[in-house]
């Protein structure tokens, strides 16, 4: 910067809320958002694309307002929400315990490693028909699908986290004669927390996929059902509305996990 530019902060907005950099991000972000939305609407209005395929922002807005004000959408949200919360909760509980055990006990890791590798490579949605055979078409089946879809990433992340604790910290703890539990609490757990949270974030995404796929294949309620039904009725705007609901859910959950992540990452230097 020249010395002329050194005086710049004084000329900044008195509130100092927006530096140049974030505002550039914001400006271009908004431009990108608005341009795509505008192009979509225009293409639809000018009949460049089939409305039945791409719908349009205004049609989606109308569909959203209609189904919210009539209350049609709420039971679907409640059903999907129940499946999701139960399945993900169960996956968290089991996944964290399993991941910690595998990470801590070398032999258990060796024992399960081939199965984990195989499951990693399997598109587990292929198991949905089997799950339906076993659990029927009720709530249980969907909970199991969400569970299976999300548990794997959680387990693997926790496992990686346990091993991520640098050996030198274990040595430090050991040199102070820390007990096994103390070592676990003061070294293993803090070192693996970021990994756990990454696993949770990935798991929330997978869980949503699980809900949708399960409801697509067998259901009479839920957002996945709402999307599938409206698809077969060629109500494309409603299909997009359902998808956007899921997208918002994904964003909100992702952001939530990120807030927790930041809370647990205070000791980590900020990378700029």
């Amino acid at each position: 910067m020249t010395l002329g530019s050194l005086a710049r902060p004084a000329n900044r907005s008195p509130l100092g809320l927006l530096g140049w950099r974030p505002s550039e991000r914001l400006v271009f972000g908004l431009i990108g958002f608005v341009v795509v939305l505008g192009a979509w609407e225009a293409a639809s209005q000018l009949k460049l694309v089939k409305k039945v395929v791409l719908s349009s922002p205004s049609l989606i807005w109308d569909a959203a307002i209609t189904d919210i004000s009539s209350g049609v959408i709420f039971p679907h949200i409640a059903v999907s929400g129940t499946e999701y919360v139960l399945g993900l909760g169960l996956a968290l509980l089991v996944g964290v315990l399993l991941g910690l055990s595998i990470g801590l006990f070398r032999r258990l890791n060796y024992l399960l490693d081939p199965w984990l590798s195989a499951l990693y490579a399997t598109p587990t949605v292929a198991l949905v028909p089997l799950i339906i055979i076993i659990f029927g078409i009720g709530l249980e089946a969907k909970v199991v699908v969400v569970f299976i879809e999300s548990i794997f990433v959680i387990t693997v992340s926790v496992m990686a986290g346990v091993r991520a604790a640098d050996a030198v910290y274990h040595d430090v703890a050991q040199s102070f004669r820390a007990s096994g539990w103390m070592r676990f609490r003061t070294v293993t757990l803090p070192a693996s927390t970021p990994y756990l949270l990454t696993g949770v974030r990935l798991g929330t995404g997978r869980g949503i996929v699980g809900v949708v796929v399960a409801e697509f294949l067998t259901s009479n309620s839920g957002i996945g059902f709402y999307i599938g039904l409206n698809g077969s009725l060629l109500q494309t705007a409603r299909v997009y509305f359902g998808i956007i609901l899921l997208g918002i859910l994904g964003l909100v959950l992702g952001e939530l996990v990120r807030v927790v992540e930041r809370r647990f990452e205070r000791w980590r230097p900020q990378i700029n």
Partner: peptide, 29 residues
């Protein structure tokens, strides 16, 4: 950088979307 800023909101949104849910529309299309 500016291309990234412009794409960011859409990429973030589409990435957090279960794109599998687009199946009905894709079948229509």
């Amino acid at each position: 950088r500016r291309v990234q800023y412009a794409l960011d909101p859409w990429l973030n949104f589409l990435n957090s979307l279960p794109r599998i849910a687009l199946l009905p529309v894709i079948v229509i299309a």
